[in-house]
Amino acid sequence: MRSLSMMLLLFSGAALAEAPQPAMPGMEHAHHAHAMRSWTDLPLLKTKAGGESRERVIVVPQNIVADAVDAYSNKLADENGRRRLPLDMAGAKLDKPASGGFHWLAAREEQGDEVRVASAVYYFGERGAENPTDMFITQKHELEIVPQPYPREHSRYRANEDWKFLVRFQGHPVVGQMVALETQNGTKSVWVSDAQGVVTVHLPDDFNAETDGKEIGGSRGMGMRGSDFVLAARRADGGKTYLTAFNAAYGKNAFDQRSIVMGLGFTLLGMLGAVPLLRQRRKKNDMPEQPEQTEQKEEA
């Protein structure tokens, strides 16, 4: 982990890019989303359930001026494999395709020599959904932060855990790329990708009484409380600057509101309950029968 000053240096450009910009023709709605207050200056894609339906989710871009959200499903060859979702006042509506499963969401903004991308993943529970590896591997933008892997069903990002992300530029892994982490709870840190372009990020255990967390994950979260984090990388190439962010929710650490001491205690209690079975005296009919005896019995 590098110092906070390095991070400020790295993302000073991002802060500058957040200066108020005039709305582009036809982008009033998108600009409305852009104006929403956020806990970070980095581009984000927030998802929320579309009312009571489990078949729709609303995607709301923050800190980015975009007129649409691109949605890639885990069945790329399907008619719903790549969809461009128009933005309105509420956000972009992502309807669950028949194939369900993982969706890669991205919003892109290009202003002069600055390209900014916000990305996130959403999962629609569906039996037999396609393997999403192709969707993750497929190049979607110039600079990308790709989860390696993304938490599968019944799993989630959690505090105090290490997770891997691949940093790619034009489809190729980037070695030594600085990646900034910001959490909604206020933690900021910088990580560096290794020789394979993979950055291992330790999600901080930064929940406290004030940042107790909100409900995360919709049907996947099952009432789990958590917060949000965003990873971002910046790279200059060919006279352009690319800023890419990937955001997701993370829950409290695995042992929050759990007691391993009590768990072991109850396990031990159960074990003690079974000890009489071990100590029971061997009765005659408990003795394993010798094959010869069995044979004789059978012959009789």
Binding site: F266, T267, L268, L269, M271, G273, A274, L277, L278
Partner: peptide
């Protein structure tokens, strides 16, 4: 659940 697990392991 833990007590049952402990019981099953020994039993």
């Amino acid at each position: 659940g833990n007590a049952m697990f402990g019981f099953v392991v020994i039993a």
